[in-house]
């Protein structure tokens, strides 16, 4: 039951990321200078005269430019338009009264749209890094477990070493020594590589242990007796036995990677500004001390992150025991 709910949350988040251009009312970087830090537009169904309407919004009228406070302009209803121009829903008067379901940020950009596009970066990066960690980890662990001896010793010493490194400090140092200005694609690849390298040992150790014990079983001996080559035995028979373990590890690593990206971007060492990722959004939010008191909608990436991590954790809950607590790793 909880597991299904978790899976549903995770799948929903992934769908949001994939369908971002359709779901998001605006482009991630379109700015409206008249709506800096504007609050979320409320959806109304009751008009001022008490009559019922299809959902509509009111235009935000600026009350004080200095304080960035806004008031609903109740003189005219702004109906919504559905399924037009390749978007799920937009305001019928985008120029004057844009639909801002989660408000606007300090540049007047729609937070919801940035959240959806940001999901592509944040979740995509975490998924890619987890894939990389799995490939490296399975290769290293499989090799160490299959060959044994010196190879095993060397590889396991290596993973031990990486595992005791202060991961956050290493990621910081590696990112910080490279030029601060990189293209988003370069940052994406770079962070994925760093995260994959830091996450791989956790997979490698488990894979090694499983491969070692599986190798002693009869079916492995049978395959060997039938003349299967080492690579075939490893790839066809031994590594598939680690599937369950790897699936669990991925649900542990993905949340850690999402949070790691957010942390790095939060301190300004992740993605450069115009790129929408959950970390850069929090970075923008944190530059304004009034965010906590007056503009709480700027913290919605934190809520999104919580939902995704919760979804993955609920999936993991059922996998009793193994690394239950690791999900809290920052």
């Amino acid at each position: 039951m909880t597991r299904r709910a978790g899976a549903a949350l995770t799948v929903a988040a992934a769908l949001c990321a994939v369908a971002a251009p359709f779901l998001a009312p605006h482009a991630a970087d379109s700015r409206d200078r008249g709506l800096l830090n504007a609050p979320p537009t409320w959806l109304h169904v009751l008009g001022d005269d008490g009559t019922l309407h299809a959902p509509f919004i009111y235009r935000w009228r600026i009350v004080s430019r200095l304080e960035q406070s806004y008031q609903e302009d109740r003189s005219a209803r702004v109906p919504l338009t559905w399924f037009s121009g390749g978007h799920l829903v937009q305001s019928s008067n985008e120029a004057d009264a844009p639909l801002l379901l989660l408000g606007a940020d300090s540049f007047g950009r729609d937070v919801l749209s940035r959240l959806l596009y940001g999901a592509r970066i944040s979740l995509g990066l975490a998924a890619l890094a987890a894939l990389g960690a799995t490939l490296i980890g399975a290769t290293v662990g499989g090799l160490a477990g299959y060959r044994g001896g010196t190879v095993d010793d060397l590889l396991m010493r290596g993973t031990d070493f990486v595992m005791v490194l202060p991961a956050m400090y290493v990621a910081l140092a590696l990112r910080a020594v490279l030029p601060l200005v990189l293209t988003p694609a370069q940052v994406f690849g770079l962070l994925a590589a760093i995260f994959a390298a830091l996450g791989a040992p956790f997979i490698a150790r488990g894979v090694r242990a499983i491969v070692r014990s599986e190798r002693r079983l009869e079916y492995a001996a049978a395959a060997e007796a039938l003349g299967a080559s080492g690579w075939r035995l490893l790839g066809r028979h031994l590594l598939p036995a680690t599937r369950g373990f790897i699936a669990v590890q991925i649900t542990v690593l993905v949340p850690a990677f999402i949070v790691a990206e957010a942390t790095l971007s939060y301190v300004g060492l992740g993605f450069p500004d115009p790129v929408a990722s959950w970390g850069t959004m929090l970075h923008d939010a944190a530059t304004n001390i009034r965010v906590f008191a007056d503009f709480p909608w700027l913290l919605s990436p934190a809520v999104a992150m919580f939902i995704v991590v919760l979804g993955l954790n609920l999936v993991l809950q059922e996998e009793k025991g193994r690394g239950a607590g690791l999900a809290a790793r920052g």
Binding site: P255, A262, F292, A293, L299, L314, A328, G330
Partner: peptide
Amino acid sequence: SVVLLSMPPLLTSLMLVFIAAR
């Protein structure tokens, strides 16, 4: 516990600072 497990320190600190500021 399940809720808190899904809130790494980055999120708990934002949440607590939010509460404290409010």
